[in-house]
């Protein structure tokens, strides 16, 4: 097993992140330094560490949203590794469409689009027929206990927890090979948190690689196949 790299889908090599705040006297803020690990399909790696230890920054680099300061991240995409911090933006967008999904606790509200359509969209983009996409979207919304009377409305006026559940429904209606999760259960009640835990575990068993941040101990224990400790990854913070 140790030699089997065929299922390797994310490889982080000697990755460091330092923010240079040019307008504050070029102050340098190192979030973490020289991190290396790799993640295989079917694994759930949970990032662990105190607030400010760089967990979110690491996820954002994996998504191409932040740039590495040193080192690199390779993502297996369409059969070959892509250097996500150095490739053309078009490639990053293609990686996001097909290989990697980022689920945060915030829904990027699309102002005038109905909830059901927001959830159907990832399926339609992949060529699903409308009736099938609708059925799967509605099943997902139901599973997340979002009342049917809300399905025809845009989520702009929903409560924080309702918006978050729309976001999760959209993110899990189609599972990407790599799922990045930044506290997806943050504002949810017990029952809905349990649904999300189920969805994550299901995705993993179906072969997705999960890299996530969960503050809740119970959730972390249930979801993780492995912890990655961020504490002590910042030589300057010690």
């Amino acid at each position: 097993m140790a030699d089997d790299t065929s299922g390797e889908i994310v490889r982080v090599e000697q990755l460091s992140k330092t923010f240079v705040l040019h307008n504050q006297g070029s102050a340098e803020l190192t979030a973490f330094a020289e991190i290396s690990f790799s993640v295989h399909a079917g694994e759930a790696v949970v990032l662990h560490g105190p607030s400010g230890s760089g967990k979110s920054s690491l996820l954002r680099i994996l998504y191409g949203n932040y740039l590495p300061s040193a080192g690199r991240v390779l993502i297996k995409h369409r059969g070959a590794f892509v250097d996500i911090g150095a490739c053309d933006p078009r490639v990053t967008l293609d990686v996001r469409r097909n290989t990697i999904n980022f689920v945060s606790q915030f829904l990027r509200v699309i102002p005038r689009v109905a909830t059901r359509d927001i959830v159907m969209d990832p399926l339609l983009r992949r060529g699903a027929a409308v009736p099938e996409a609708r059925a799967r979207a509605e099943a997902m919304l139901e599973r997340l206990n979002l009342p049917a009377r809300l399905w025809d409305l845009p989520p702009a006026t929903f409560s924080g927890g309702e918006q978050q559940r729309v976001n999760i429904a959209r993110s899990f209606v189609h599972i990407s090979p790599v799922m990045l999760l930044d506290e997806p259960t943050a504002a949810l009640d017990e029952a809905n948190r349990a649904v999300v835990v189920e969805l994550v575990s299901e995705a993993r068993r179906n072969g997705a690689a999960i890299i996530g941040i969960f503050h809740d101990d119970e959730v972390r224990k249930t979801v993780a196949t492995r912890l990655f400790d961020m504490a002590g990854r910042n030589p300057l913070a010690a």
């Binding site: 923010f19 240079v20 705040l21 040019h22 307008n23 954002r60 191409g64 949203n65 932040y66 740039l67 933006p89 990053t92 967008l93």
Partner: peptide, 21 residues
């Protein structure tokens, strides 16, 4: 220059940092 959300969320140039802040 770069991917839009990357330039806005992790700006590298002093001027871009002023613009986004």
């Amino acid at each position: 220059a770069g991917l839009t959300d990357q330039v806005l969320d992790d700006p590298q140039h002093p001027y871009t940092q002023i613009l986004t802040s």
